[in-house]
Design a protein around this nucleic acid. Sequence first.
RNA 1: GCGCUCGUAGCUCAGCGGAUAGAGCAACGGACUUCUAAUCCGUCGGUCGCAGGUUCGAAUCCUGCCGGGCGCGCCA
Length: 554
Amino acid sequence: MTPAKLAATVLSAARAVFETRGLDVSALPETTTMERPRNPEHGDYASTLALQLGKKAGVAPRELAAALAEELSRQPGIKSVEIAGPGFLNIRLDAAAAGVLARDIVQAGEAYGHTEELAGERINLEFVSANPTGPVHIGGVRWAAVGDALSRLLRAAGATVGTEYYFNDAGSQIDRFAKSLLAGAKGEPAPEDGYGGAYIAEIAAAVVAAAPDVLKLGEAEQLETFRRVGVDLMFAEIKQSLTEFGVHFDTYFNEKDLHESGALDQALERLREQGHIFEADGATWLRTTEFGDDKDRVLRKSDGDWTYFAADCAYYLNKRRRGFDRIVIMLGADHHGYIGRMKAMAACFGDDPKVNLEILIGQLVNLVRDGQPVRMSKRAGTVVTLEDIVEAIGVDATRYALARFSSDSPIDIDIEEWTRATKDNKVYYVQYCAARTAGVARQAAELGVVRGDPASFHPELLSHEKENDLLKALGEFPDVVVRSAELREPHHVARYLEDLAGAYHRFYDNCRVTPQGDEKVTDTHRARLWLNDATRQVIVNGLGLLGVSAPERM
RNA sequence: GCGCUCGUAGCUCAGCGGAUAGAGCAACGGACUUCUAAUCCGUCGGUCGCAGGUUCGAAUCCUGCCGGGCGCGCCA
């Protein structure tokens, strides 16, 4: 009996009650959720359905609860139903009905937690998209960890997902980057507004190595060479460090391609057809105020150049034309001012900005040293990069540490502190659980405890309080995945895994899977092995969603 | 000034409109001859920023205020 099945049972019981009493069946919701009460006196699962429906149906919640309880207690697998407080239904399951879950999970394997909830949704998820003017720093690392986890979650929830890195290779930042490289190659100091840092000298040297005659060219050609080769090298480095971080993008999209393919003109035409373009002061504008933006936005400047926003418009249209119906973009809080114009832009294209475009704003990562904030600056070279942090604490610890926080809360990273406190990282609590389940399984195999035929599994033997708690935690996993995917909040998965690991550790402390001394192997041992293996499966699946490994030994 | 966001234990943070608000760290005290002690158990610790409102029920939703962060270019 999974929570989902129980919820369905509660709903059908409610339907039966409504029908026999002649109540309005349309008041019933399509789905209902089961709560896992903190207080064990409140049963294994609780439903608040009677409370929610009381008013709609015009029946006192407690009266409705009583009728529901009577109906429910006749259902197989349900041991008891109690009414509490204003109309809570506190439900207890038969140990056997609860225990079957262990076998279900083992049999489902990697599929446990995968649902079809978001089936049919075609989601484009853009994240990181750092300019190739320097290595990925800790700000970008957060989105790499969270965005990659989110893409895995969305897929697990049944969506079709395309991940995307927008690779800005056309703007003035790039020009500054090229000038900085040129200066570096000549041994000159970085220009005003340019980039400093040791990596500039390295890339500059690499450009010279790739194009030995570059410094003999005319100045324009020099710049062009440093721009082209430098961006390629820088981007290759970014891609490499992301790959080592376990993050892969389905599409690396060049801004330059938008310009060269005429996509900007097409987007402008499309917007003009929709009637949202006007000319003023020699520039071409999009009337975004029509859809709630603070001010109208320039697409083409009076000097004839496109704005960055114009490229955003073309890029959005490009994604939509590639068949994505949900464009999701993860941005740092320093870009939240873009939401208004982006939403308005989607509306100008004739889309529904609430449906087709989602902008996820994440709070920034602050670099801290000795308790004092340090301003990161590529120019000053005070940048902590993806590689720095991975080198300091490792891929798993980095990904986990970043993914377990809500994106709404800013994170302070003191790299020395993080390195020193590595052992405190929660990832090890969860990974240790994974290693323990594997260790128990090894020990079981050695002592002749085998799960055996699924038909010979005795779920009713999983009756210990800690076994029951563990089963309830295991049952939550699919809901956690769906909810995290729908809310775009991967951190719930991490928090859930910590909760699950705790339940397993307590089970481990109280219930032996393998016999000791001269004990014979019993059905209880075998039943517990199912539970052990089910736990391992869920930890493996859950860590997989976060891109974190589940070791067999630690 | 306008907009977004956050404010929960000493610190870092969870918390789906549900019952007595949780975890880790820190402090203190226990549990390894037995499946891995990177674990477990216990103690200590709270006006959920403040004030109203909606609700059977609010840390959660709404309004106002206070405080922190961020943003408000024909920059990218």
